[in-house]
Design a protein around this nucleic acid. Structure first.
Lengths: 205, 205, 205, 205
DNA sequence: TATGAATGAGCATTCATTCAT
DNA sequence: AATGAATGAATGCTCATTCAT
């Protein structure tokens, strides 16, 4: 049966399977044997690669965040001005089934982190990564003068909050939030903030 | 009907006790036994007042939301202009220990709703209540001309998203988000949106 | 179903059932569900009375030791001289099926204590109880001048060792050690030690 | 047949490693995996040399007993009189860390044998070897007239019981039984029995 | 209204064993 | 002779729920 298995591949595949199970059954409803079954493996195999259920869950969270970071890069890179930036950010919202699944699981992990210190520590690292990336992007755009000159760290916090808050609501009310409404609301929220103006703090010159 | 009132008191007291246990142990780590113990009761008493664990949890969620609604009323009523409105909204953020606890449990409930259709239905009702209240307030202010004339429904969605997103982050990174940073970030996000402009505001060009 | 159950009775009954299971299956082969089944209960009931398997096992050990202590009292009390004392001590050996079972389980517990510090601490307490009781008895007999005047603490240690060593061997070779051989060997070992001599006994030349 | 020798070396090395693991984790806490790791091997290698865990455990027991037999030979051979014989026997007690480890594991094996017929059969063979060796030695000394003329088989049983009982207690209470106390107690127990006397059954003429 | 002993299905976890390489 | 991934049965433990009192 052996054959040098690439450990990371195996682990990531199982973690991705776990995400699907979590989406179906919830974070605590997710059973190891369901993950195993869906991955065509046995519980023993899962615990072989992950010492415990927690370890598997952490790996699943890491996959979610890595995908989100890749999404940030893909969506915002090459962005030129405020309008394009907002459009890029909107790509992070739960616009389609795939992203809705990511959001559902993401929010489930927030729920875990809210009341669990260890999980919270993980999330703080994730936020650091994301904010750093967004801040760097904003600084570049400010240097080019295409967005408002507000402190980029504040802008980044604001953008992250806008996406998180809107994504949460759209995830909890999927039927009421088709793609258009999500995009429009995000634009309403971010455009006045990002658009450069002659006179500072004016929503639009 | 005093009996009925007493019954409601007992239920609410148990629900509030449940919130404390959820905050300690997480939504799924919360055991009926612990709720009972903390309320100086027995598990039998808890199941006497609540047919099942889910019913108790739902009641706890309802308490959280009712408190939040009362907070909206208290904080925003009597508000006169955009600046005051943002200040009122900030009162809903996790600014102190009491509100941080409410947020932690709130987020735990989101996590449950994300992957559970029944819980999600409850939340949709809660959002309806909150948005209706905020929209009514915004309409009144717009009639007075003290805030931007954007569609009040859009403004309400935006404000809810801003508070939810910022509250989530501040809850997950409590040490990094003292009161001042939360207020400043919320103001940065909402002020440009709410401040009335000479020319009728159009959120999107 | 309820009715104030006398906790200690229930616990002791389960502990005694555990002893039978341990004798059948060994200390680690003993499964909670077998104990439950033999006691006409469920595993849940067992864990209701004992927080964990270890707690149940400790209680079983305690029962074994308490029975042994009662045996010491019953067998040695009223003993008049060296010969009678040895005969009394012999009653502690695995002379019949009941005592053989106690010895088998006792030795299983030694095996656990040998490599487990927590279990070892329990046994040290048990030895203290037993040695104290034997020493007191020996002192009384020495006061009456019917046994050798050697330091009673040394005599007690020697008697305990003789019984433990012989009991162990007789337990591991039950067919080779009928009652008579056990009694004879114990007498051969203890009589020269306990019999008073004209000149004050010196255990060591 | 060098191959065979190498094989035996490998097996013995693994068995000795198993003893260390048993001492750490107990007989049932000892995992094949840990034995393998401590021996810088894999579980597959262990099962290659030993068909099953039981086989490995039996081999470990055999090593313990062979060491003890070698100890009997080393300690008692060349012994001239009762005093020297007792001093030799004392060398079998858990006087130092190395022997304490052997005793801990030995007692763990007794615990297994107490409730397991197959393991018990092994031990009966071991007792046969040991008693035969001791009996032969005692007969030689009796022929020389340097020890009591009691039936050597009885003397051997008595000596084995004394060492086993004392060793057990000293193993379970290591801190209370420094070398001196062990030697003194063994001497107290065996000297009256072994010392030749004009008048039989006199502790010392 | 309240008690708390009992239930029992369900879970993660453990680990000896197997076997393709 | 050795590897180590995979198996899968087995077990202790959890805990919401029930119900006689």
């Amino acid at each position: 049966m052996p054959k040098r298995v690439v450990a990371e591949d195996r682990r990531e595949a199982l973690a991705r399977t776990a995400i699907r199970v979590i989406d179906d059954a919830g974070l605590d409803g997710a059973r190891l044997r369901d993950v195993a079954a869906l991955a065509d493996a046995t519980t023993g195999a899962v615990t072989h690669w992950f010492g415990s259920k927690d370890e598997l869950l952490d790996a699943a969270m890491r996959v979610i965040v890595d995908d989100a970071l890749a999404g940030v890069d893909a969506a915002m890179a090459g962005t030129g001005d405020a309008v394009a930036l907002v459009e890029g950010a909107a790509e992070l919202l739960p616009l389609d089934d795939e992203r809705r699944q990511q959001w559902r699981v993401q929010i489930a992990f927030w729920g875990r982190a809210a009341t669990d210190a260890r999980a919270r520590a993980l999330h703080q690292g994730y936020y650091r990564d994301i904010v750093a990336r967004v801040t760097a992007l904003l600084s570049a755009l400010q240097a080019a003068g295409t967005i408002a000159a507000t402190d980029p760290a504040v802008l980044a916090d604001a953008m992250v909050a806008a996406v998180d808050g809107l994504g949460t609501r759209a995830t909890l009310e999927p039927d009421a939030w088709p793609e258009g409404r999500q995009r429009a609301t995000l634009a309403a929220l971010l455009t006045p903030l990002l658009t450069p103006s002659e006179r500072p703090a004016d929503a639009r010159a």
